[in-house]
Amino acid sequence: MPSARHPSPRRRPGLLGRFSKDLLALIVPAAAVVAGVGLLGCAPNGAKHLDSGEPLQPPSAFAAVADDAERSQAMFAEAARVLLHPRCVNCHPSDDSPRQLDSSRMHVPRVTRGTKGDGAAGLRCASCHQSENLSFTRVPGAPHWQLAPIEMAWFGKTPREVCEQLKDPARNGGRDADALVEHMRTDPLVAWGWDPGADRAPVPGDQNTFADLIRAWLDTGAVCPPDTTTPGAAS
């Protein structure tokens, strides 16, 4: 544990000392092989989204695009930099387990969504995740920390696919346009993306700019970008 303030509880001293150097020499390369295989075997099945790190462009940055439909598509592509960021999609999986880190590896421990998206009996998300980030233990947290419902799965999707989902009340939590913008602008779990704690990379921009983009996209006809569009490609 990385803290001088709370030294770890007494561990049996000299545990490693029991291993001879020879034994360690055997174990270390073996562990490296296992870890290597693990990395290959656990590659996320969705495309990894690595953001450019550029500031999130507000709707005004798209004023030069004269055609409403094109502007709508471009603004959605920009908003997709947030929507498809690992901080967001890691908890919008299309299976039953969240992902972790920028690599979107499987969550450790291998937790599952349970019946309500908040974990299995005895292994709830709240077993570890509190209503705020914990600085000492680095565990991320926010109010109502849980997985997005399966119909709101975004992991591995394209901006276009997520765009179509967001317009469909059956796949957006039953929200109309205003409720969607409100959710994006004020929901504390959405807000966590900009304040993820520890050394986690935040989603780009700020929550208001993101919500403004969603509003402007809706106001320009909520046109979805083509299949081939990648997050931020239009900015």
Partner: peptide, 24 residues
């Protein structure tokens, strides 16, 4: 582990299982 991975520290808080190593 001290980092919520192993479950050795599970206790109940108001009846819910929690990991004491990451619970302030």
């Amino acid at each position: 582990c001290g980092e919520a991975y192993c479950g050795a520290c599970v206790i109940h808080l108001d009846g819910e299982a929690v990991r004491a190593c990451v619970t302030p």
